[in-house]
């Protein structure tokens, strides 16, 4: 029996596999009612907004100044609430 040439199946585990990528449900920025606007003069670069942002849409420049990825920001307002110097304003979407 051992010399019977049985072709091995290509894969025993056929399962759908997803890979991590931004925008798995599209551009979630359209969910927003209010958008966070950062006042760069007030910002003290403490990075608390970056730490608490659930979406990873607060991004850091080389000098640790933060900016917002408006394509995906859902506008929850956590960044504005945790900012110790109130440098983030929530502005209604026009």
């Amino acid at each position: 029996m051992s010399n019977v040439n049985v072709e091995e199946p290509k894969s025993l585990f056929i399962a759908p596999v997803s890979k991590p990528a931004p925008g798995s449900v599209g551009k979630t920025g359209t969910w927003r009612h209010e958008k966070p606007v950062i006042n760069e003069e007030k910002c003290v670069k403490c990075l608390l907004c970056w730490l608490y942002c659930p979406e990873d849409t607060i991004l850091r420049r080389e000098d640790d100044m933060v900016y917002v990825d408006y394509d995906y920001c859902k506008g929850c307002g956590i960044c504005a609430k945790v900012c110790p110097v109130n440098a983030i304003d929530m502005v209604p979407e026009g």
Partner: peptide, 28 residues
């Protein structure tokens, strides 16, 4: 130390979580 973390995506933006979700915070 917050400054020592790299400038990469720790969580993928544009996921299906509700705004203000604590689970995506935790996953980061």
């Amino acid at each position: 130390k917050l400054r020592d973390f790299p400038r990469t995506h720790f969580n993928m933006p544009g996921n299906a979580a509700c705004p203000g979700c604590p689970e995506t915070m935790g996953l980061r």
